[in-house]
Design a protein around this nucleic acid. Sequence first.
DNA 1: TTCCTTGCAAATCGTTTGCATAATG
DNA 2: CATTATGCAAACGATTTGCAAGGAA
Lengths: 131, 131
Amino acid sequence: MLKYSRQREAIKNFLMTRHDHPTADVVYSNVRTEFPNISLGTVYRNLTLLADLGEISRLRVGDGVDHFDADTRPHYHFVCNECGAVSDLELNDISGLLEAAVRDFDGMIQGHVTYFYGLCPHCRSTVKKTS
Amino acid sequence: MLKYSRQREAIKNFLMTRHDHPTADVVYSNVRTEFPNISLGTVYRNLTLLADLGEISRLRVGDGVDHFDADTRPHYHFVCNECGAVSDLELNDISGLLEAAVRDFDGMIQGHVTYFYGLCPHCRSTVKKTS
DNA sequence: TTCCTTGCAAATCGTTTGCATAATG
DNA sequence: CATTATGCAAACGATTTGCAAGGAA
């Protein structure tokens, strides 16, 4: 059975205030202002628990670090190749289109994950062309 | 300047014989039958080098382990939620479709990554419905 | 009082790196 | 000979886990 914990609530609340898909480490250092003794282990345990419960989602964008998102509605993400920022992307719904594109597959498709990569608005106007 | 190495050639050759997108560890234990003294570090160094050269590609499917693919032509992958196998997927080209779906984005999209998840043909017929 | 959750530290896992030696050009 | 590549082992960074103590039901 699941028991209430103030730390877990603080973690979830913090995540709901952020739309930049923070990592466990960022969650940790922020929640620490409210719970100075909280441990990284607790943060990881709760993020994993919340993700398993479906209350948050875990994003693996390929940078080797997990990102977390309190918005569990289906939507898409953009990752900046320059600064690594992860942001939401306005997108027409493509899940149907995607799964319709699959041909001749004997297994069962249950879902898909799509990440877009490029230069975010800020880096696009900042970065040298030669980098 | 790049110098020839028998180990690198063996790694690439091995990868070309496999269509199951092996991990570095699998590459290591297989190439070891030909080079008993090869080290995991050398395998990682060469896989990274080959990927940087564009001769192979690195797949980050979200299971925490990198997979490698000697087929660098654009194509899509399927990951089994049950056994973790990574396989190629027959798919109509969806890149245009995907990029056309993006709206109101100020940055610059340079590419995307899509993975499909579900049950592979084998697990589909094996796994209990309750798992 | 039961047993879930925490904090802490140690452990794990995949991957990278420093260094002395071997191999290539 | 100049330089890159190797093998080995140690270092790394992110995440997980064991355990004794604290907190919720």
